[in-house]
């Protein structure tokens, strides 16, 4: 077990956006969090990194290495961010500061986390770019000079730069076309197997869930209504809403799978 969320509640005034959610993520597993828009998935993921706005309040416990992350002071949280927990977002264009190159972003993060040797930084950056299938020369470009798929790869490279224990992918492929999305996801799967990080995969696309995840939690109106292994949820769903989700998903034709492998 690498991260355990216990009775997490995120509230905005009186309104509860996330209501007493508990879930555990094991080391190196692909944990999918499924639910429709507005079900509180993103709020849950942001509470983990203490990224909630000042008008939102989180209570409960988020246990990481025996400590409650929610109670961490700002400085300790900053050390954890990037190194232990990392994120990828849906909006890949907005993920990079427009006037900095990919390399400048990476340099900055490595320096913040104590990699002071220039040669070591260079080596790590080259490795990170190659691991996501981008040429090392792409690092010298600005974000607007890359295509959507390339940018999402670059943001994965950035997120995995410091080899975090948990990667939170919040709708990471929603803005990509389905071929690119599958390429990105199989890349993530490869990287996960190589580096052994856990992935909290937030999506509303049931097809991705069925294909890649190990464990699934279904979320509705701020509550987790069903959780379990993929086999159990896909073949023997208990809750009516889960059944509805499965029925609503279009089936995936075989040939797209083949394309994504190539």
């Amino acid at each position: 077990m690498i991260l355990a969320i216990e009775d997490l509640t995120v509230s905005h005034g009186e309104k509860k956006i996330v209501d007493k959610v508990s879930l555990t993520i094991d080391k190196g597993e692909w944990f999918a969090l499924v639910g429709q828009s507005g079900s509180g998935k993103t709020m849950l993921s942001q509470a983990i990194g203490q990224l909630l706005g000042t008008n939102l309040r989180a209570s409960g416990r988020i246990m990481y290495q025996g400590d409650n992350v929610l109670e961490y002071p700002k400085e300790k949280m900053n050390q954890l961010r990037g190194k232990a927990i990392s994120y990828i977002f849906q909006d890949y264009h907005g993920s990079f500061t427009p006037f900095l190159t990919i390399q400048q972003h990476m340099e900055e993060y490595l320096q913040t986390h104590g990699v002071h040797q220039k040669t070591q930084r260079k080596e790590m950056m080259k490795e990170a770019m190659e691991s996501v299938g981008l040429e090392a020369s792409f690092a010298k470009r600005y974000s607007f000079q890359l295509s959507g798929g390339q940018l999402q790869r670059a943001s994965i490279a950035l997120a995995l730069l410091l080899e975090p224990d948990i990667l939170i992918a919040d709708e990471a492929t929603t803005a990509l076309d389905s071929v690119s999305a599958h390429r990105i996801l199989s890349l993530l799967q490869d990287l996960q197997q190589k580096k052994g990080c856990a992935i909290l995969f937030i999506t509303h696309d049931w097809r991705h869930v069925v294909r890649y995840s190990d464990k699934i939690a279904v979320m509705k109106d701020g509550k987790i209504i069903e959780t379990g292994t993929k086999q159990k949820l896909v073949h023997q769903p208990e809750h009516a809403y889960t059944k509805q989700l499965i029925q609503a998903a279009p089936t995936l034709p075989m040939r797209i799978r083949e394309v994504s492998k190539s």
Partner: peptide, 16 residues
């Protein structure tokens, strides 16, 4: 915008 969030996630201080 997300890039500010990402910078925060990667542990940069508010001043930086």
């Amino acid at each position: 915008k997300d890039y500010v969030t990402i910078a925060r996630i990667n542990g940069l201080s508010t001043f930086t």
